[in-house]
Design a protein around this nucleic acid. Structure first.
Length: 460
RNA sequence: GGCCUCAUCGUCUAGUCUGGUCUAGGACACACGGUUCUCAUCCGUGGAACUCGGGUUCAAAUCCCGAUGAGGCCA
């Protein structure tokens, strides 16, 4: 069978992590089977759909490297197709116009719930040829609707509980369940892989496929991505847009890798996978049934792993956008060295400015910070003076980490911290930072001496 | 409320289909220790889970039933 999958987001919000994960699984499955993966924008809800959201979805998928085949399909461009199918259904008496008002329907629903019935509307106006009102499916199916879910096995529904479900607001305004069925069939989607929240839509869609004589796709319902409180991931759990992760300085490959492992695993102990490896290994029967919490901490770890693996030049390019404070041209040349120092310390690129600001401007810190263990001011000052005198003798081309380390350690006492801690703080102004030799190599001789002097001055 | 889905360390999960090799494995996080000052990296050590109750069986995390819990959809 020719494998063809799709992701069908509505442009009513930014690209959601849940949507991205579904897209990812569809992509992985299609590519694993040398099939196609397409993007269909479900923009029939004119009120809520916006072009900027479509742009965001497109940008987000591209950023993640979830590439679709062919052109983007938009439901708004397929209205004629829906109309044709709707007319057929109407003509064959399988659909009808429902004259009931929203108020009447609400009333009916209320009664049903009160009497512990499943809320549904089975219309008493099925036979009438009205020509306006909501178009509904005439549902008089009696036999159980069954389908085999690739992840969950056989699932059954009682069709009587569905009622005469709605298909369209009018001939040119199709509703979700109807449009999806027409699209998936006419676009020859072989596998519908989507979130678990769509399981309950499936029987309606199957009934429609049967009524229209359309090919039924293979269904696979993915477990949901959950927030900390185990409910479906949503805005109140914090960042849910892929764009937010980009802005925080997560690398697309890291997010890609992390999302792939949410609800799926290869059955081996490896955790870091390239896109290629994931395509090669992905299989639908290793997908979980249970929902998975989006664990930010683990994402951070994985992102750190990817940052460390990244070639320095590329990392520098990616990092440039994260500095809010102005960096002069002369400072730009040391950016590469600075980032090299921070590379093993980073979890995400947004940490960069705060971690590296002291390379670009004079540090501000409390004199207390210069003190290591029980040192008094005099010993701190002595240490700094020693450091300065060593530095003054170093030739400009001797300002390398290796050379400085050799010179300083030769002069350091038994407790190296007495020399190294005050020196490091004088240079960085920070409690946590790279080592003093690395910093001096980047800063250069003059600037290093300047900062040591500033520290000595603070002690007076 | 009705229907549907799910259930192993705090979290992601392996193991479940094809019962024994599981005194339940890995990773993240956490704690402790090591790696020429701090942090990070790297390395090591540790604590930490089969939701509960029945049943089947010589044997159940694994099969069956029930309960409970969690989630989803429907308005």
């Amino acid at each position: 069978m020719r494998v063809k999958t799709r992701i069908a987001p509505s442009p009513t919000g930014y690209l959601h992590v849940g949507t991205a994960r579904t897209a990812l699984f569809n992509y992985l499955f299609a590519k694993h089977n040398s099939g196609e993966f397409i993007l269909r924008i479900e923009d029939t809800d004119i009120e809520r759909s916006e072009a900027k959201f479509e742009d965001d979805i497109v940008a987000g998928l591209k950023w993640l490297g979830i590439n679709w085949d062919g052109e983007i399909t938009r439901q708004s461009e397929r209205i004629d197709i829906y109309e044709t199918y709707l007319k057929t259904l109407l003509a064959d008496g399988m659909a009808f116009y429902c004259p009931h008002s929203q108020a009447e329907l609400d009333e009916e629903r209320k009664k049903q719930v009160a009497n512990k019935f499943s809320p549904q509307h089975t219309c008493d106006a099925r036979g009438k040829k009205l020509g306006k009102g909501l178009i509904r499916f005439k549902n008089d199916t009696e036999k159980t609707v069954k389908f085999k879910d690739e992840i969950r096995g056989e699932i059954e529904f009682d069709p009587a509980l569905l009622g005469d479900f709605s298909l369209a607001k009018d001939l040119r305004t199709p509703l979700y369940n109807f449009a999806v069925v027409v699209d998936d069939a006419t676009m020859e989607i072989s596998h519908v892989i989507r979130g678990e929240d769509h399981i309950s839509n499936t029987p309606k869609q199957i009934l429609l496929e049967e009524a229209l004589g359309l090919q039924q796709p293979i269904f696979a319902h993915l477990p949901l991505i959950l927030g900390k409180d185990r409910s479906k991931l949503s805005k109140r759990h914090g960042a849910t847009s892929v764009i937010d992760y980009k802005n925080e300085g997560y690398l697309p490959d890291a997010l890609f890798n992390f999302m792939a492992l949410l609800g799926w695993n290869p059955g081996r102990e490896q955790e870091i996978f390239s896109k290629k490896e994931l395509i090669k290994e992905f299989s639908i029967d290793r997908v979980q049934g249970a929902g998975a919490i989006f664990d930010m901490t683990k994402l951070d770890w994985m992102n750190g792993e990817y940052i460390r693996k990244k070639p320095l030049k590329e990392l520098v390019e990616l990092s440039k956008g994260f500095f809010q404070f102005p960096i002069s041209n002369s400072q730009f040349s040391m950016l590469e060295k600075v980032i090299a120092l921070e590379q093993p310390r980073l979890k995400k690129l947004s940490e960069l400015p705060e971690k590296t600001d002291s390379f670009f401007k004079e540090p501000e810190y409390d004199a207390e910070l210069l003190k290591w263990k029980q040192m008094d001011n005099l010993t701190i000052k002595n240490s700094l003076e020693t450091a300065k005198s060593i530095l003054q003798l170093v030739a400009e081309n001797g300002m390398t980490k290796e050379n400085l380390e050799k010179l300083f350690l030769a002069k350091a006492g038994k407790d190296r911290g007495e020399l190294l801690w005050p020196l490091r703080v004088a240079l960085s102004g920070k409690k946590f930072s790279p080592g003093p030799f690395e910093i001096m190599e980047v800063l250069g001789k003059d600037k290093s001496i300047l900062r040591i002097n500033a520290a000595i001055f603070m002690l007076k």
